[in-house]
Amino acid sequence: MPRVLNAVVAACPDLGIGHRGQLPWHPLRLSKEFAHFRRLTSSSEEGKQNVVIMGRKTWFSIPEKNRPLRDRINIVLSRELKAPPAGAHHLAADFSSALALVETQLSERADQVWVIGGSSLYQEMMESRAPTRLFVTQILKQFECDTFLPDISPDKFVLLPEFPGVTRELQEENGIQYRFEVYESVQQ
């Protein structure tokens, strides 16, 4: 059975996910939402680690003191870099190369695979034939955005009524309401 690919993202009502290399609501911090991200992307299987795959811009948008993401195998995608950026564990030229790396060199250590951005990487994952889950934090306030999540097509993804460990209750921090949603790819 093929490995399930997971993506985690927080998006405004217009599916905006970034503005000038930051989260759209920056400098506001959504600590509970960030804890949700950390809990999802950190492994729970003994002796293994989750893999986080991200584009170069996403890597550099993470504050240097938080790179690499602790207790996770960090893979950065770039066609330009010749070596992993300082702190990253692995460099891959593209998404398929990153997945091949997971299945070959990292197969014994890797637990779940998580895509954490950016936009083109989400697009590629959402178009793949692999079983896919999207963990979306729907931010219920619009902020200015210049980077967007691709449309979540209802003929490709179904919103799950519930998912273990993910609350459906409305959340609020710093005057911003949001809710967690999980979508699963419809297997053709």
Rank of each mutant, 00 (worst) to 15 (best):
S61P: 06
L40K: 00
V113F: 07
G117I: 11
S61C: 08
C12Y: 08
L81A: 10
I116Y: 02
F163Q: 07
P164N: 02
N66L: 14
E80I: 08
Q49I: 06
T137Q: 09
C145K: 03
L30P: 01
R179F: 14
Q142T: 07
V8L: 08
H90T: 07
V76T: 01
R133K: 07
C145V: 10
R70C: 08
N50H: 13
V186D: 01
G118Y: 05
P84Q: 09
V52D: 04
R133N: 03
G16A: 04
D151P: 12
I176S: 08
K32V: 15
M126K: 01
V115F: 09
F60Y: 08
R29S: 15
Y178T: 04
A7W: 03
P131E: 08
A10E: 04
V115C: 13
M1Q: 13
Q187T: 06
R72T: 01
L99C: 08
V113K: 01
A98E: 04
L40Y: 06
L15C: 15
P131H: 03
P164H: 02
L170H: 02
N174F: 15
S44K: 11
K32I: 05
R20F: 14
M1A: 10
M1C: 09
V136C: 07
R38M: 13
M126Y: 04
V52K: 00
L159E: 05
L69S: 05
F163T: 07
F143Q: 14
R79I: 13
L106E: 04
W25L: 03
N6T: 04
L28E: 10
M54Q: 03
L23G: 06
A88K: 00
D155W: 12
R67H: 13
E181N: 12
S185L: 00
V102S: 05
Q123P: 10
L99E: 10
G175H: 02
L121K: 01
F157E: 00
R179W: 12
N50Y: 11
C12A: 10
R39C: 15
Q177M: 14
I53Q: 06
D151M: 09
D14L: 08
P164S: 04
T41Q: 03
F157I: 00
F135W: 13
L69E: 10
Q123H: 10
L81T: 03
A83W: 08
E124W: 12
I176N: 01
V136H: 12
F135G: 07
E127G: 07
C145T: 12
F95G: 07
P63C: 10
D111H: 11
I53C: 06
D155E: 14
R70L: 15
A92I: 04
Q138V: 12
T137V: 10
V115M: 13
E144K: 12
M125I: 11
D146V: 09
V8R: 03
K141Q: 11
L81F: 09
P68M: 06
L15G: 03
V51A: 04
V158D: 13
I17N: 01
Q112C: 13
Q177A: 11
I73M: 05
R38C: 11
A130F: 11
Q138M: 06
N6R: 07
V8A: 14
G47S: 05
T137K: 05
